[in-house]
Amino acid sequence: MADGATPVNSADGENRREFLYLAAGAITAVGAAGVAWPFINSLNPSADVLALASTEVDLSQIEVGQSVTVTWRGKPVFIRHRTEDEIKQAEGDDGAGLVDPQSDESRVIKPEWLVVVGVCTHLGCVPLGQKTGESRGDYGGWFCPCHGSHYDTSGRIRKGPAPLNLLVPEYEFLNDTNVKIG
């Protein structure tokens, strides 16, 4: 050899080639993981969504017969402090021909408090009936003017195209005056 390079036997060449393949593969894998991680991490819920995973509501300010709307996970949640008449009407309608049969008892923890997600189950509109003077439909609950769905005082669909009752979110009473949704 005129260059002064040392001759390499074929076994050493194969070992070096295998090492280079392994090293290049490892670097490629680390690079792919480095590129993929931000994408995968972007699929996680954002901090504001995690902060809204549960909501606590003070019920002491809600009078009998009054309804309030709170936001939970970006959706309106209707909380109604039902009157005795609304409770009796809801319990009396348990045997009525309901589109989505559920008893009033299965939809509430305490009969005087109704907590439902305020999104119509037909096309996702927000039904009317929370504010004084708004139409509450034919059954005294909520009315979705977009397509004419009528909900009763337990949030059950009674008339119209909606296929399901208003959703009851997971909630619990922390004490007599506070409820935690989510």
Results as ranks from 00 to 15, higher is better:
residue 112 E to H: 04
residue 43 L to E: 10
residue 59 L to I: 07
residue 19 F to M: 12
residue 158 R to Y: 02
residue 130 Q to L: 05
residue 64 V to S: 04
residue 153 T to D: 02
residue 116 V to M: 09
residue 46 S to I: 15
residue 69 T to L: 08
residue 43 L to D: 05
residue 17 R to Q: 07
residue 138 D to K: 12
residue 165 N to R: 11
residue 176 D to Y: 00
residue 44 N to I: 15
residue 120 C to T: 08
residue 11 A to R: 11
residue 105 E to C: 06
residue 113 W to H: 07
residue 148 G to W: 00
residue 85 D to Q: 15
residue 46 S to A: 15
residue 96 A to C: 07
residue 70 V to Q: 07
residue 119 V to C: 10
residue 75 K to L: 09
residue 44 N to R: 15
residue 30 V to R: 05
residue 3 D to L: 07
residue 110 K to M: 04
residue 155 G to Y: 09
residue 71 T to D: 13
residue 104 D to N: 07
residue 1 M to C: 12
residue 166 L to W: 10
residue 61 Q to A: 15
residue 94 D to E: 13
residue 111 P to S: 11
residue 163 P to T: 01
residue 41 N to Y: 07
residue 15 N to V: 10
residue 145 P to Y: 04
residue 93 D to S: 15
residue 92 G to P: 06
residue 134 E to W: 06
residue 50 L to M: 13
residue 129 G to H: 02
residue 89 Q to M: 13
residue 103 S to D: 15
residue 74 G to Y: 03
residue 149 S to G: 02
residue 26 A to K: 00
residue 99 V to H: 10
residue 15 N to H: 05
residue 131 K to E: 08
residue 161 P to W: 01
residue 85 D to H: 11
residue 82 R to Y: 01
residue 22 L to V: 02
residue 152 D to Y: 01
residue 168 V to D: 06
residue 74 G to I: 06
residue 111 P to Y: 04
residue 141 G to K: 03
residue 122 H to Y: 07
residue 53 A to K: 15
residue 121 T to P: 04
residue 117 V to T: 10
residue 14 E to P: 00
residue 79 I to Q: 11
residue 40 I to T: 11
residue 87 I to A: 01
residue 117 V to F: 01
residue 174 L to D: 10
residue 96 A to G: 06
residue 39 F to I: 11
residue 125 C to R: 08
residue 111 P to N: 12
residue 158 R to G: 02
residue 48 D to L: 04
residue 165 N to P: 08
residue 48 D to F: 05
residue 91 E to S: 06
residue 60 S to I: 05
residue 3 D to S: 12
residue 73 R to K: 15
residue 69 T to A: 10
residue 125 C to S: 13
residue 63 E to T: 13
residue 36 A to I: 10
residue 74 G to W: 02
residue 28 T to M: 08
residue 55 T to P: 00
residue 65 G to E: 07
residue 65 G to V: 02
residue 47 A to G: 03
residue 36 A to G: 08
residue 81 H to F: 06
residue 126 V to T: 13
residue 94 D to T: 11
residue 165 N to G: 09
residue 58 D to V: 11
residue 120 C to E: 03
residue 139 Y to D: 04
residue 117 V to C: 03
residue 7 P to C: 14
residue 73 R to A: 12
residue 80 R to I: 12
residue 17 R to P: 00
residue 48 D to W: 05
residue 15 N to M: 10
residue 50 L to A: 09
residue 166 L to M: 14
residue 30 V to C: 07
residue 60 S to P: 01
residue 129 G to S: 04
residue 68 V to A: 07
residue 158 R to S: 02
residue 139 Y to K: 05
residue 65 G to P: 02
residue 67 S to T: 12
residue 170 E to N: 14
residue 44 N to Y: 14
residue 29 A to V: 08
residue 46 S to P: 11
residue 98 L to M: 14
residue 17 R to W: 05
residue 148 G to S: 01
residue 25 G to R: 03
residue 107 R to W: 01
residue 75 K to Q: 10
residue 70 V to T: 12
residue 178 N to I: 07
residue 26 A to D: 00
residue 78 F to Y: 07
